[in-house]
Design a protein around this nucleic acid. Structure first.
Lengths: 137, 137
DNA sequence: CTAAGTGCAAAATGTTTGCATACTT
DNA sequence: AAGTATGCAAACATTTTGCACTTAG
């Protein structure tokens, strides 16, 4: 996955610390900057991006691209991980933009089905179901 | 899906004409601009983007977001694939870019499931399953 | 005549990069 | 000391928007 050695810096710890407080949530780089700023522990945005890249590279967080013109989302991958991992599906409401996480046995079935019947290996971290959420429909 | 009425303009025809020459290929907005420029039939880039948006909206082309920092790709949806309606699912190979159409009873089930259990109305025409195809995996 | 589309240039957006400085090991 | 990280501001690339103008129906 990656080989570079990492230094343990204040900024890195702040980021990891923040991610630990929002397990299972999707946050953007901007969210992170705003949060840190509000705690007067602000760190440069380039550092945020660079650290995010490293953390993704190390597999500590996951990156999601929801939409061409919305910021990328990052999510903490808890080390004991029953968080949003391999079997987490995402629904995006086309109207209000809300992102819904689903951990569902039955949805995992579609993965098996696609693989067995259609010889397609679905990547749930890249796949987003578009549609309408309860409130919007 | 869409309700607005569309005018038949020279620019729209140029775009559609272009797409018909590259069935199954994915092209970027920049590709389109470059091609048209080379044919001295150049049209404004805002028009390209606006038309692309309309065409996606009308279901005539599909939009793919492969990566956060690469341009969006568009692909012509041939009209003779008329079956490509409410119950057509699409799988996109992240490696070779191939687009696979699936008409499958079992996949329709996930629509019912999402609706019944998760109160989410899936729109299969907008949803693309990303993953790896048989050859690439 | 009205609704829709066009083109330009400017703005917005999200992310990356150059560079001098500072920290970790 | 060597390697890595930081912060700022500037650079980037893609896409969107404001506005005056044109065109299709």
């Amino acid at each position: 996955m990656n080989s570079k050695s990492r230094y343990k810096t204040k900024q890195r710890e702040l980021l990891l610390g923040y991610f630990e407080t929002v397990p299972g949530k999707h946050v953007t780089a901007a969210d992170i900057c705003a949060y840190l700023r509000s705690r007067e522990a602000s760190i440069g945005q380039s550092t945020v991006y660079r650290q995010l890249e490293s953390l993704v590279d190390e597999g500590l967080i996951k990156k999601y691209i929801i939409d061409a013109n919305s910021p990328a989302c990052f999510e903490y991958v808890a080390p004991d991980s029953h968080a949003c991992g391999e079997f987490c599906f995402h629904c995006k409401c086309e109207k209000c933009g809300k992102l819904i996480h689903l951990h569902c046995e039955e949805l995992e079935e579609i993965q098996r089905h696609l693989s067995a019947e259609h010889h397609f290996r679905l990547d749930p971290t890249r796949t987003v179901f578009y549609g309408l959420c309860e409130q919007c429909m």
